[in-house]
Simulated scan of single mutants.
Amino acid sequence: MANPLFYAKILLFGEYGIIEDSQGLTLPYSFYKGTLKFSDLDSEFEKESNSNLQKYAEYLTGLVLPNNFELNVAQFKKDISKGLFFDSNIPQGYGVGSSGALVAAIFEKYSLKKYSPETISKLELKELKKVFGQLESYFHGKSSGIDPLICYMNLPILIENKESVDKVSIPKMEAGKGAIFLIDSGMVGETGPMVQIFFEKMKTEGFRKTLKEEFIRYNNACIDTFLKKEMNPFFRNLKKLSVWAYDHFKPMIPESLYNAWKKGLDTNAYYLKLCGSGGGGYILGFTKDYEKAAGMLEGFNKEVIYRF
């Protein structure tokens, strides 16, 4: 493959919960993608990307990766000097894995060990996740490695717990009335500060208790019922999850969406949840009747990602 494309990812379920060992479910999202390319660096975008790759290459120089993984950093640096850049339309700060796709692309091109995502074992996934965590921590301070793993695999992934992930089949799309969709909050979200707020909240016993006893339970039930295609129990748990987030994740909900979030809960026409760390970027919407929900969310930019 000459220039493999690396797609964005969407974390359907598990934001913040996966830090505390809940399950997570992620999908590749092919609307946004990126690939490594060479150019004469004529545009500002290309120049900036090339310069960022230079800084990242310095970070990689002294990095010792687990499980005997090695990257050909010398070749990476050589390619950067020849005009390598990451050509991507994945928006940054939108919770769809811009740094994950970049890390996956670099790993694919420069890792001495090669994989075929179709035949990869569960143990290898676990090892890769660790490696990707180290490679991506340059961008976020601390990374679980999940984002680059999804971008690299380009397959739906079930996060079973902190340590373990597996490939999973999601129900086939159908041309039904229901939909999962993205809403653009119109503002960029910063992962770092949002995660900081979460850890501050985790210092209070009451929050830790409700996270474990309610949030994680609803989150895992949503994943379970969605994969089994049991839509009625799925929406029941989804509403509980959305109410919980409205009560406890207020700082992470973009202000432009407060009222729309509440309106969905009051009318049961749709339910909203965070997509990634929140604070801006995209918010996820779920509805049994997309036409009706879209009418109620007029004025917001929306993109349907799954129909049922």
Rank of each mutant, 00 (worst) to 15 (best):
G192T: 10
D289G: 13
W261L: 12
E213Y: 11
S256M: 13
E163W: 04
N232I: 01
K229T: 09
I159S: 06
I18S: 04
F226W: 12
Y270N: 10
A221G: 06
P28L: 09
Y138Q: 08
E291W: 05
E230F: 02
A179V: 09
E255W: 00
H140F: 03
K82V: 05
M231T: 15
D166N: 04
F85I: 03
L158Y: 02
E124K: 04
Y152Q: 01
L238M: 10
T287P: 13
G141F: 08
S169V: 13
K229P: 09
K122D: 14
P148D: 06
D166G: 05
A105Y: 00
Y290L: 13
N52T: 02
F300K: 02
K273P: 10
L135W: 06
A57D: 11
S39P: 00
I150F: 04
M173K: 14
S164A: 05
P251I: 14
K201F: 05
E174C: 05
D87L: 00
E44C: 02
T287V: 03
G176Q: 14
A179K: 10
L149Y: 00
S169F: 02
P254G: 12
I216R: 13
P117V: 08
F235L: 11
G178R: 08
A221D: 05
S111P: 07
Y152V: 12
L112Y: 03
A245Q: 15
V243Y: 14
S22T: 06
K239H: 10
E48S: 02
I157R: 02
E298C: 06
H248Y: 12
N67S: 08
N67T: 11
F85S: 06
